[in-house]
């Protein structure tokens, strides 16, 4: 598939995309930033398209961000949460989606607890499918907004050193970031307790830095992952305080950095656990610009997918490696 062909039918992750396709999304996001600054924050590009936001897992930021993106492109949107829908009566994912499709929808944005759910769905329905996070697999739009924010601040991604700190094992954000950043020529390191680093992660082309001090010495930017609190009860870490003492991003630690580090966090934050408040609110934090860029990136993805022709053979074969 060439870059000129756009993105194909679905966005299931950054792994199947080429560097050119990722650049196409980031470049397309640029003009969409300005749309959100207008007095009338709306353009008619997706007028008449119906988009279903199908969220099987809790989400505030991502769901609202997608919804804003859809509405600012003039699409009609419906939100389906697993609780209160037929999903709680035991309907399968495909049946839910086929029923929605029978109501003549154009796109599905899906968040699901199972890795591969977005691909699974995309292979079975004609509508465009966008992955808004599937299990431990990928969260492509989060990685794209991280990359856009980095590119805004540094003017490039090539040669940048990004350290991803925290619970890499359970993180779809980490996986999508690793795929995207390495494809665009950035260097990526991961840092966290060994219990929270997947085995064989080096095969994804990243360096493992065991100590957070090493990551701070090495990196241009830190992407600090949320410590999913349920991991503590599952025995991955001894205690939150212990985690903060060894891996927490504190201003004390950052003072020893050879350069000013840009601080990213996908949210929601556990202040005082993986990141201290004075860092999160500090001058090098781009946590809120990330959220702003999230809407622009999602507008770009929706716009690019909507322009493709759903059901064309090349699109439907899609991602199977």
């Amino acid at each position: 598939m060439t870059a000129a062909a756009g993105l194909g039918k679905d966005l299931t992750g950054l792994e199947p995309l080429s560097a050119d396709q990722i650049r196409l999304i980031l470049d397309t996001a640029e003009p969409f930033k300005e749309v959100s600054e207008r007095q009338i924050k709306k353009v008619p590009a997706l007028r008449g398209k119906t988009i279903v936001n199908l969220f099987f897992e809790a989400s505030t930021r991502t769901r609202i961000s997608f919804e804003f993106a859809e509405k600012r492109l003039s699409a009609d949107t419906v939100n389906v949460a697993a609780v209160g829908s037929s999903v709680s009566k035991g309907e399968t994912l495909v049946d839910t989606a086929r029923n929605l499709e029978a109501m003549r929808i154009d796109m599905v944005v899906i968040r699901h607890g199972s890795s591969g759910a977005a691909r699974f769905l995309g292979d079975r329905i004609n509508s465009n499918v966008i992955n808004a996070g599937d299990g431990k697999h990928e969260h492509p739009t989060q990685a794209l907004l991280d990359m856009l924010t980095l590119r805004d601040r540094f003017g490039r991604l090539e040669g940048l050193k990004i350290a991803i700190v925290g619970d890499v094992l359970h993180s779809r954000v980490a996986r999508s970031n690793i795929w995207g950043l390495t494809k665009l020529g950035a260097e990526v390191a991961v840092c966290g307790p060994y219990s929270l680093l997947p085995r064989g992660i080096e095969e994804m082309g990243v360096t493992v830095l065991p100590r957070v001090e090493d990551a701070i010495q090495w990196a241009d930017a830190l992407n600090v992952l949320r410590l999913q609190l349920e991991r503590m009860t599952a025995g991955f870490i001894p205690s939150l305080r212990e985690y903060n003492r060894v891996f927490g991003i504190t201003s004390e630690r950052l003072k020893r950095a050879p350069r000013d580090l840009l601080i990213l966090h996908p949210g929601p934050m556990n202040r005082g656990v993986e990141i201290d408040s004075d860092v999160a609110d500090g001058e090098h934090s781009v946590i809120l610009p990330q959220v702003t860029n999230g809407v622009a990136v999602r507008m770009a993805v929706l716009y690019l997918l909507a322009g493709g022709r759903p059901g064309s053979p090349a699109a439907v074969q899609g991602a199977e490696p």
Partner: peptide
Amino acid sequence: LQTIGPKPVVGE
């Protein structure tokens, strides 16, 4: 949009 596909370069 549907017939020509997206024009990737949206200007300022």
